[in-house]
Design a protein around this nucleic acid. Structure first.
Length: 266
DNA sequence: AATGGGACCTGCGCGC
DNA sequence: TGCGCGCAGGTCCCAT
């Protein structure tokens, strides 16, 4: 699932590829991904504008235009390809004056594209906590230490920290030896320090590897992310734990599938 | 206030 | 081989 490292990978590539490009035309193959505005109005707002800057806030990609911004969310099964070739699952095509074509692809049509005059007014961005990469160890502990919720759903809640999804929450908890159902206010300071360290380490390595490709994620050249081979527990239920060899369990926690080792994670 | 469940979607893997 | 079923997951929305 596209989470912080995957979205950051796309952001860095888009910076190099489409910054300073002028939108000449937009093609809608499936307008359901355009939210809050009709496809026609979206077109009116965006065509003729230049992409000034590409940004990321949590899992949201922001294309700042000369005036206003395009916000893209890949949700579960979205990815972006810049290529002149046709792309399977392309839902919207941005055709630039310099000949580049950005395809917003999404096999499940759950991703979203919006136009906002001011991207900071977006409801998700307004309620978002600090970016997972920017939070200090102390700040991290302070966000969670008084919460009565289970730690894993707390990590996934974008209002707490932004950018973590189901893959990296599970991986970070395994790395830190913390059970996903521990109540956040029962976790010790020392454990929070370790969890923070693990999370940052994993996110940075995943960015270096251009993300994890689970299901559909691809970078803008259409290539797989390289972090998948480093995943320790995500979707590994029934396989031996890489540390102790006990079989990895899978349990629904906070409504989401969660893999963990009951021996290594307490 | 916080939590839980359903809705949005469709490709895929499984069982028969 | 082919068919049908249900899971997967980020966010929003509603209900409790």
């Amino acid at each position: 699932m596209p989470e912080l490292p995957e979205v950051e990978t796309v952001k860095r590539q888009l910076e190099k590829n489409i910054e300073k490009s002028k939108v000449e035309k937009i093609e809608f193959l499936d307008s359901r991904v355009i939210k809050k505005i009709t496809a026609k109005n979206f077109q009116k707002k965006v065509v003729g504008q230049t992409v000034k800057k590409v940004k990321r806030q949590g899992k949201v990609l922001i294309l700042e235009l000369s005036s206003g911004a395009v916000l893209m969310h890949l949700r579960i099964a979205g990815w972006i390809v810049v290529s002149k070739k046709e792309q399977k699952y392309a839902r919207v095509k941005f055709i630039f004056k310099n000949g580049k074509i950005m395809h917003f692809c999404d096999s499940r049509v759950l991703g979203t594209i919006k136009y906002l005059d001011d991207w900071k007014k977006d409801s998700l961005i307004q309620t978002m906590g600090p970016d997972a990469l920017e939070v200090t160890a102390l700040g991290f502990e302070n966000i969670f230490k008084d919460k009565k919720t289970k730690i894993k759903p707390a990590l996934l809640d974008q209002k707490n920290i932004a950018g973590i999804g189901n893959i990296y929450a599970q991986e970070a908890l395994f790395c830190a030896g913390i059970h996903p159902e521990r109540e956040a206010n029962q976790i010790l300071k020392k454990e929070y320090q370790k969890l923070h360290k693990c999370l940052i380490k994993i996110l940075k390595k995943a960015i270096e590897s251009q993300g994890s490709s689970v299901d559909t994620f691809r970078n803008i050249d259409g290539d797989d992310g390289g972090y998948s081979s480093f995943l320790k527990v995500y979707r590994k239920a029934g396989l031996p734990c890489p540390k102790c060899k006990k079989l990895i369990e899978n349990k629904v926690v906070g409504g989401r599938g969660t893999c963990f080792c009951s021996v290594c994670q307490k």
